[in-house]
Each structure stands twice: as structure tokens, then as C-alpha cells.
Design a protein around this nucleic acid. Structure first.
Lengths: 127, 127, 127, 127
DNA sequence: GTGGTCTAGACCACC
DNA sequence: GTGGTCTAGACCACA
């Protein structure tokens, strides 16, 4: 997993987002054990406390749960994950829509553009 | 104009992108004079040399041109701007498409999602 | 305000409870400004970070809100405060009920006892 | 038995209270032999001298008695136990009453609340 | 070893 | 000055 941070948002919030994304996109599978706080923190290059805060937030969201001595685990509540996935997708769609409209494209033009891009992909299926 | 920078890309490249976007989205109108390098650099909180480099790149792209004494101006070549607009939109569409596919959505689902979001907008016209 | 902490519960959680209680019992009136984090922390004898954490929790509950530079304030949502008050009272009633039942008293005996205590008060109205 | 102590009261006084409560609530039955001072102290995590002091106080109250060689025993004076029970209950009732009045509830509201809580119990008989 | 809590001290943005 | 964030390092309970 790659960890990159922007400077205009708290690191812990970005950690929440990135882990949330990793969970809903299946990079972290339901029920899987996460690395220890210390290890993940080292890997991400942040202080363990900062990562701890992010994980607590994710726990509040129900996406992970912790077991005292065994470690932290991704939730097995696939319905919740699906719901989060929908929420993230919807947020992205909205942001994309607004950006494209700012550029002067209407919905049908955007859809056309997407279809064109999709077709280009066919010529390069491994990407 | 708001200037924000990520830490994982050269500042000058991000400046190019942001100014390019401002031009194609009409925030900088064709033929308009840009502030002085020094002023823009101050406003963006970057070193004037960095901004200078970004402007040279934009000149190379043809999006701005400089006149010896009068300063720098946005190009009046609306065809070029339109072309750039298309290029940016296409790049964004591709990035969006890939991100959504990573989340497990196929093209038709994405389009449905966009239409849903579009409709929500109608229900909230003040936004 | 007096701050006392038990050792079998996190300090930050106890801070949340004590401040919550102070708000619902009217010691902190709606809309009133709280002392700064640093001052309250000094007064309570805890680290500012610990108190900060408690206040963030209270903010999540909606009982306080913060304004960037001006400080933190008690919510003006009196309905929410009333609701919290009811919740606290209910929790206390339940704990009391269970403790008394453990001692072998049934509901009617408990009520009788309360009425007796209430009457004793009449003889000592200033307490 | 669980032993927990607050920091704002002498440990020995809290020991007295907890053992007194254990006796009147029947966790320590009349006539039962108590563990040795050393064992109880270890279990409670306190100094044996502190526990000794608590036991002396309980002897003074008549709730336990010691026999030279056989050890310490819970009193068999059930009338005394009943009296203590009443005293504890009364003290708790008073504390509860005051706390609830601080929250702005009058006696009748408190009684209503207790009845509500009692009914909830009926709806959840497994608890 | 794990998660969890706490402290101390620093820096930032905002006004 | 305010709230907010981050780091560093310590200690605890649990098993």
C-alpha cells in the first residue's frame, strides 16, 4: 500500500480515507487482520498516535474492530462495506460531475466522453 | 483563486495544471493580462522562479504569451483552448473511470450513478 | 468545578461525563463560553491533549461547538440538552434500581424509602 | 468479588463499604468464614495493614467477629444485617434523590422514571 | 507482543 | 490568544 498525504488536510483524516478506500475496494478483505498500529505507522511514515486516531475513527464508522490483544480486523459486515462503497462512488461521481460542468460539459457530453475512453481501453486491455 | 499543492508532485507542474484549468474553465479569459510573476508568486505562496518556470511551460503550450514590456497574457486562440479543454476533460474522465472500476462499477452503473446525481441537483437548485 | 477521577476508567471519558453532567444540570449554561483548553486542563490537572479529546467527543455529541479563534461554547440546542438530561436520569435510575434490588428491595419499597427521605429533607430545607 | 477504588477517599474506608455491601447483599453469608487478611489483601491489591484496619472497623460495627485461631467470620446477627441494609439503602436513596433533584427532577417525576425503567426490565427478561 | 491511554512539548492557521 | 494537529516517548492491561 502506498501512502501519500496532502498538506491541506489533517493526516489522520487522509489515513481514514485511504484505509476506507482500501477496504471498500477489496485491498483489505473483510475479516482480515490489519498490521499492528506501530507497524502501519512506520510503513505510512506517521506517528503511531496519528494512525491510532485514524483507526479509532474507522472503528466508530464500523469498518474495523479491535480485539484487545490480537490486533485489529476489517469488519465482516459486507453490507456496511457495500454501503460505504456506494457512498464513496456517489461522492466521486458528484465531484466529477461538478468539475466537468465547470469545464462546460453537460451530462450527455460527459457520458459520451466516458464511452470513448472506455473504448480506448479495449485497445489496451492489460492497463 | 485558491492555490493548494500536494507534496507528491513538483510545485511547478501543479502550477501549470492549475493555471491551465483556470484558463480553459474561463476563470482567466482569453486575452486577459496576468498579474506580474512576483505578485502571482506571492499570492500562491511559491518562489517566483518556480512560477516563472510554470509560465514558460504554459507559453510552450501556447496558452499564454508574453509581450516584452506589457506583461503576460492569456492566449486568444479559442480553438486551442477548446482543444485543451477536451484534453483535460478526457484525462479526468479516464481517471474517474479507472477509479470507479477499481471500486467495482462498470460503465453502465457509473452512468446511472451520474444521472442520479444530476437529478439530485435538480431537487436542490440553489446549490 | 471539582474534578475527580477514578482509576478504572479513562480520564478523557470521565471528563466527558463530568462536563456533560455540568451542561445538563445547568452549571454550564447554553451558549456560554468554556475556558480555553489549556486553562480547563490546568484546572482539572490533566494534559491539554486529554481534555481536547474529551471536548472533541462532546462536540461529536453536539453538546459543545468550537469557533476557530473565539473558543468553545455550550450548545444552544436546549432540546438536545433536555434529551441528554433524560438519558442521564434514566441511566441513573436504572443503576439505582438495580443496586436496590440487589439489596432485596422491590419497587414499592424503594419508592417508600424515597418518600421518607424526601420528608426528612423538609426538616432541613437548606441542605 | 471485584475491588475497585476511587482516589478521593481512603482505601480502608472503601474496603469497609464494599465488604459491608457484600455482607448485606448476601454475597458474604452470615456465619461464613472470611479468607485470611493476607489473601484478601492480595486479592484486593492493597496492603494487608490497610485491610486489617478495614476489618477492625467492621468488627466495631458488629458485622464481622474474629475467633482467636479459626479466623474471621461474618456475623450471624441477621437483625443487625437487616438494619445495616436499611441504612445503606437509605443513604443510597438520599444520594440518588439529591443527584436527580440537581438534574431538575422532582419526586414524582423520579418515581415515574423508576416505574418506566422497571417496565423495560419486564420487556427484556433475560437481562 | 497487542491495543489503549496519557503526558510533554512543538507547530500551525486564524484574527 | 484560540483551537487543532502531530510527534515522541512512556506506561498500562491483557494473554
Amino acid at each position: 500500500m502506498e501512502w501519500t498525504f496532502k498538506s491541506d488536510q489533517p493526516i489522520y483524516a487522509q489515513l481514514v480515507e485511504q484505509i476506507r478506500l482500501a477496504i471498500v475496494s477489496g485491498d483489505f478483505v473483510p475479516g482480515a487482520r490489519l498490521s499492528s498500529v506501530r507497524d502501519m505507522a512506520t510503513e505510512a511514515g506517521v506517528n503511531p498516535n496519528t494512525l491510532q486516531r485514524a483507526l479509532q475513527e474507522l472503528e466508530r464508522l464500523g469498518l474495523v474492530y479491535s480485539q484487545r490483544t490480537a490486533g485489529r480486523f476489517v469488519t465482516e459486515d459486507t453490507a456496511l462495506i457495500a454501503q460505504e462503497k456506494k457512498a464513496i462512488a456517489s461522492a466521486r461521481a458528484e465531484a466529477f460531475l461538478q468539475a466537468m460542468q465547470k469545464l462546460g460539459f453537460d451530462l450527455e457530453e460527459i457520458i459520451t466522453l466516458l464511452r470513448e475512453n472506455k473504448e480506448e481501453e479495449h485497445g489496451d486491455p492489460d492497463m
